[in-house]
Computed example of a mutant assay.
Amino acid sequence: MTIAELCIFACVMLYLLTIVPAKWISVDGAGRYDNARPRDPAFYDGGIRERALGAHQNGIEAFPFFAAAVLLAEFRGAPQNLVNELSVLFVIVRAAYVLTYIGDRPSLRSILWTIGFLMTVAIFFLPLLRNYLPA
């Protein structure tokens, strides 16, 4: 198993773990999480819970393209060291993205999202450039 493939797993864990703290936090005496109503919109209404849900949902949205890009790059013979490095950087950027989303830093969050997206695009097109890149 490659480092890049482990990064796919890390991305899944990141977006799953993003929502867990929001379910445990009682904000200003607001209601506790009710497992019988896991998608109750009122529970996530406003504040840190709403931002955690947004970060979680964005992680779900970003995951398919990242996973497909990594697998395509590996199947098409892109330089594995570059795929690995970009994948690790992507996970780091996504973790920082989650922190800025929950921490209510929208400008920095948008910058990090763009960087992560461009890394995924780079991974996706690595096979196209493999003849011009070091092995």
Rank of each mutant, 00 (worst) to 15 (best):
H56A: 04
F125P: 07
V93D: 08
V20S: 01
D45G: 02
M119I: 15
F125C: 09
Q80V: 15
Q57P: 09
F65R: 09
A22Y: 00
P38E: 03
C7S: 03
H56M: 05
D34G: 13
L14S: 00
L89F: 14
R130W: 06
G46K: 13
V121Q: 06
K23E: 02
Y132Q: 13
Y101A: 13
E50R: 08
L99G: 08
G31I: 09
I25N: 05
I102D: 01
D28F: 06
E5L: 06
M13E: 00
K23Y: 04
L6H: 04
R32Q: 14
F9L: 08
L108I: 15
N84K: 10
A67G: 14
L86H: 12
E5G: 00
A68Q: 12
A96C: 15
L112S: 12
I115L: 07
L71P: 11
R49W: 01
V20F: 01
Y44M: 03
G54M: 11
P64A: 09
G59L: 00
L53Y: 14
R94P: 09
F63M: 15
M119K: 04
L14H: 01
V12H: 02
V98K: 03
P41L: 06
D28E: 07
A36L: 11
N131I: 07
P127M: 04
R37W: 07
A135N: 15
R39K: 11
L6M: 05
A73T: 12
G54R: 15
L71E: 12
R39T: 09
F117A: 04
D34K: 14
A78V: 14
L133M: 08
I111H: 10
F117R: 02
Y132F: 09
Y33C: 03
G103Q: 02
V27N: 05
A78I: 14
D40S: 10
S107N: 10
F9E: 00
